[in-house]
Design a binder for these strands. Sequence first.
DNA 1: ACAATCTATTTTACTAGTAAAATAGATGCT
DNA 2: AGCATCTATTTTACTAGTAAAATAGATTGT
Lengths: 161, 161
Amino acid sequence: MDFVDRARQGWEISRPDLDVSSIEVMGRIGRIGALASHHAGRALQSAEITRAEFDVLCTLARGEGPLRASEVTAATMLSGASTTKNAERLVKRGLIERLPWERDGRVVLMRLTAKGEELIDREFPRFLETDAAMLAGLTANERTQLAALLRKVALTVEALT
Amino acid sequence: MDFVDRARQGWEISRPDLDVSSIEVMGRIGRIGALASHHAGRALQSAEITRAEFDVLCTLARGEGPLRASEVTAATMLSGASTTKNAERLVKRGLIERLPWERDGRVVLMRLTAKGEELIDREFPRFLETDAAMLAGLTANERTQLAALLRKVALTVEALT
DNA sequence: ACAATCTATTTTACTAGTAAAATAGATGCT
DNA sequence: AGCATCTATTTTACTAGTAAAATAGATTGT
């Protein structure tokens, strides 16, 4: 009995006429996402960094070369204002640097510093381990299947504007 | 090519030694969850209600009878302080009411008003429809499979404290 | 019974995130 | 070229969420 089984049971009793089957997938995605995010947040406290800041660093770490602020905004799914604030905090901590872009003076490029790279080298593998631990209940085959199904959903959802 | 395919490609180039396969599942869960949540938030603007407030109302709607504030806190995964604030806003809008519990004076019970029930009757089916639309790319069989796999993950993750 | 302790919720003080306005640079049209 | 328009980022003013302290009621041990 997971959280969604209990929720579904509740709806069955209070609104038996509704077809709530979509929560079997979407409700679990929301719940697992929130739990995983809380977990990661707690794990990152030792690095004195927030989940959002870690997301920014990961985005930069996996990008080829510096990224525009707007690219970071798109990847993190936060507002542009948030990107400015996160960037300020990360610059202050010496984890990233901002550079102008000579081809367009409006653009601000963001890049990891050596210290930022180190933080990712240290924290990202730990992050991957906790993520992997959450999939411990599945066989390799099930993981592949699950990834493929989620990929289909992701493509549908990303297409909805 | 969804968001995670691009992220994975990035890691492959910048950190080819790391096994980032867990993001195939966990990264997509996070991404789909965030997109779905943004979507729902936008849809609820017409009802002048936030996602968090809607979650509180749904929790109460599917519960049998009034729920304790602490039960709402557990279900929404927000802090107790947030439950107090959300409850205040919802009481002010006449969508819920707070009652004392005679068996324990510390406890505050929360219950939907008729107006709150109406809002759920109106908005929850619309919410289910958008959720269902996100699964449009899957066959009925795939949906069942996906739900079963996510259920396993949910049970693992919920067990991690 | 009553002091110490525990528990549920609220309050306080603060941090993070946002929408909309402001700023500054680029582009297009004549 | 020059003015209107568009675009990228930052600033401002505000809302939502939180941790920790405060409050108030319950429980336990003597």
